[in-house]
Amino acid sequence: MIPIAFDYVRPGTVDEAISALAAAGEDGKVISGGQSLMPVLRLRMAAPTTLVDIGSIAEMKGITDGGDHLVVGANATHYEVMNDALVKQHAPLLAQAAGTVADPAIRHRGTFGGSLAHADPAGDLPTVALALDATMVAKGPNGTREIAAKDFFVDYFTSALEPEEILVAVKVPKLGDGWSTHYEKFNRTAQAWATVGVAAAVKRQNGTITEARVALTNMGPSPVRASSVEAALAGAAATTDAIAAAAANAADGTRPTSDLHASAEFREHLAKVLTKRAVAQAAGV
C-alpha cells in the first residue's frame, strides 16, 4: 500500500520535463495521470527514485483540429477524450473506447498519453490508436520525432519511447465520409480489463465494404491488426455471412497468453466472435 520513497519534481514545460528526466537518470520515471503507475508503486512492483510529474504541463493538454487529423495532447484525460466534440465527430471510435476504460474516477485522471506509453496489452486505447493509424509525437533530448502506431507498441508494457523521451501528443487521422466504427470490449466484470477487445472501422459504399481496419486488444504482447480479416473484408458484401466468414480469420497471427481470466484458446475463439460483432456493428449490419 505504501510506495518506496522517491523525489518528486513538477516541471512546467516539456523541455523542463526532459531535463528533469535526464537529471534523474535511469531510475527516473514520468507520472501523468498516475492511474497505472500508482497501483504499481503501491504494490512496490517499481521503485523509481524520482517522479517527474508532467500532469500540469499546459502544452500537453487539450485537443485541437490539425486539418486532416486531430492533435490530442498526451495529458488529455479519458474523460476529456470521451466527451470532446472534435473527437466524437472525427474519431468516434476513440471517444467510445475511452468511455469503456476503467471507471469514471479513473477516467478523470488517467490520460490518453499515459495509456499509450504504458503499453499494457490489455489497454483499450493502444488498440484504437493502431486501428486509426495514429502517430505519436515524442520529444526527448534530441528533439521531436514522430512514431507511427504500428511501430510504437513493441512488447508487453514496452513502447518505442526512449527512457528520456516524453510522449507529447498524438495525431489521430480524421476518418472521412463513409466510415463508421465500433469498439467491442469483452470483460468478466465491468471494472475488469478487456479479456479481448476489437476495434473496427469500416468504410461502406452501397452494399459493399470497401475498406476495413480491425485491431485487437490483449491478443498478444501488443495490440495487433487483424490483417487477414481486413483483407477478406475489402470488397466484401456488407452482410452477416460475409462478415462472419472474414472474422473467422481474426486469430491469425495472434499470440495471446493464457492467464487467470482466459486461456489462449478461448481468447482466439473470442477474437473471432467479437470481430464478427464489432465489424457488423460498425457496418450497421
Binding site: P39, L43, R188, T189, A190, Q191, A192, L260
Partner: peptide, 24 residues
C-alpha cells in the same frame, strides 16, 4: 480463489479476484 501448482495465490488483489460491481 485460484492457486497455481506451486501454491502461489493468483487472485491476490481485487484486480484479479473479481467482486461484482453494480454494473454486474
Amino acid at each position: 480463489v485460484e492457486y497455481d501448482s506451486d501454491g502461489n495465490l493468483l487472485t491476490a488483489s481485487f484486480a484479479d479476484y473479481l467482486i461484482p460491481s453494480a454494473a454486474d
